[in-house]
């Protein structure tokens, strides 16, 4: 499919015999594309099946709790950092901890698929 450079093209044209015409090549390409497409579809289905099997009780527990705790932890870290930088203690911690709590809840809802995944433009 790649375009050959002019100087190479001359050599190639001399050396290469052309047993296939374009229609034959196009037909083969379509057949290959179709079979690759089928394969992709099959593996996508397989991946979906695997993912469903992965939701064991313990797995869900760790997933959801880590999402929730992470939100609060980031809020707390940001709040603490804000306070020690701008010397506004304790207001930054209070506000950002609450925002972190909200973010944690959002994370949990997102990870169990109860809200839309990511904002759309």
């Amino acid at each position: 499919m790649r375009e050959t450079l002019p100087e190479n093209g001359k050599d190639d044209a001399n050396n290469r015999s052309q047993p296939f015409d374009d229609a034959e090549l196009a037909r083969r390409r379509d057949a290959l594309a179709a079979s690759i497409g089928k394969q992709r579809e099959k593996s996508a289905l397989q991946a979906e099946k695997d993912r469903d099997g992965s939701d064991t009780g313990w797995g869900v527990a760790v997933k959801v709790s880590s999402e929730f705790i992470a939100g609060i932890a980031v809020g707390a870290i940001l709040g603490y950092g804000f306070d020690s930088y701008f010397e506004t203690s304790p207001w930054g911690l209070i506000v950002l901890l609450m925002l972190g709590f909200a973010a944690g809840v959002l994370n949990v809802l997102r990870s169990v698929g109860k809200v839309a995944d990511r904002p759309k433009l």
Partner: peptide, 30 residues
């Protein structure tokens, strides 16, 4: 734009964006 959800009233965009930013930053931790 990742942090500004679509269709949110302009008044609460700062609040929602702050929550989105924290949610994004919490990803490496979780």
């Amino acid at each position: 734009k990742l942090f500004v959800p679509h269709g949110v009233p302009p008044l609460i965009v700062p609040l929602v964006s702050a929550i989105e930013v924290i949610s994004f930053l919490s990803r490496p931790i979780s």
